[in-house]
Amino acid sequence: MHLSYCTNVHPAEDLDGIVRQFDAYAVAIRRHLDADVLGLGLWLAAPVARELAADPAARRRLRHELDVRGLEVVTLNGFPYEAFQAPVVKHAVYHPDWTTRERLGYTLDLARVLVDLLPAGADRGSISTLPLAWRTPWDARRKEAARRHLDELAGVLSTLERPIRVGFEPEPGCVVETTAQAAEALSDVDAEWLGVCLDLAHLACAWEDPGEALDRLAAAGLPVVKVQVSAALEAADPVGAADVLRRYVEPRFLHQTRSALGPAADDLDEALDARLPGPWRVHYHVPLHAEPAAPLTSTVPVLRAALRELIRRDACDHFDVETYTWGVLPEEARPRTDADVAAGIAAELAFARNELLMGVAS
Rank of each mutant, 00 (worst) to 15 (best):
A154F: 01
I164C: 11
R165L: 01
K143C: 15
L150A: 02
V166C: 01
F168M: 13
G167K: 05
D139W: 10
P172K: 12
I164D: 05
R147M: 05
T159F: 02
I164V: 13
E152C: 00
R148V: 09
D151E: 14
A145M: 14
E171A: 14
E152K: 07
S158N: 08
P170F: 03
E152R: 10
R147L: 02
L153E: 05
E177H: 15
R147E: 12
R148P: 04
L160H: 10
A146V: 13
R141W: 01
L150K: 12
V175L: 00
R142G: 14
L150E: 06
L157W: 08
L160K: 03
D151K: 08
F168Q: 08
L150I: 00
G167E: 11
D151G: 14
R141N: 15
V156K: 09
E169I: 00
P170L: 01
L157K: 12
H149M: 02
H149Y: 08
R148T: 00
T136R: 14
R142M: 13
I164F: 02
R147F: 00
T136G: 06
E171W: 09
P170A: 00
P172N: 09
A154M: 02
P172L: 01
T178I: 10
A145I: 06
D139H: 12
R162D: 01
T159I: 03
V156F: 03
P170H: 07
G167H: 02
P137I: 10
G167W: 09
D139L: 09
R162A: 00
G173L: 07
E161R: 10
P163T: 11
G173Q: 02
L160N: 11
E161Y: 04
L160D: 01
R147I: 00
T159A: 00
G155C: 10
A145H: 06
I164M: 07
I164R: 09
T179Y: 04
L150M: 12
E144P: 11
A140N: 05
T178A: 03
R141T: 15
T178S: 12
G173M: 00
E177I: 09
T159N: 06
G167F: 11
I164S: 07
E144C: 13
L153K: 06
T179F: 10
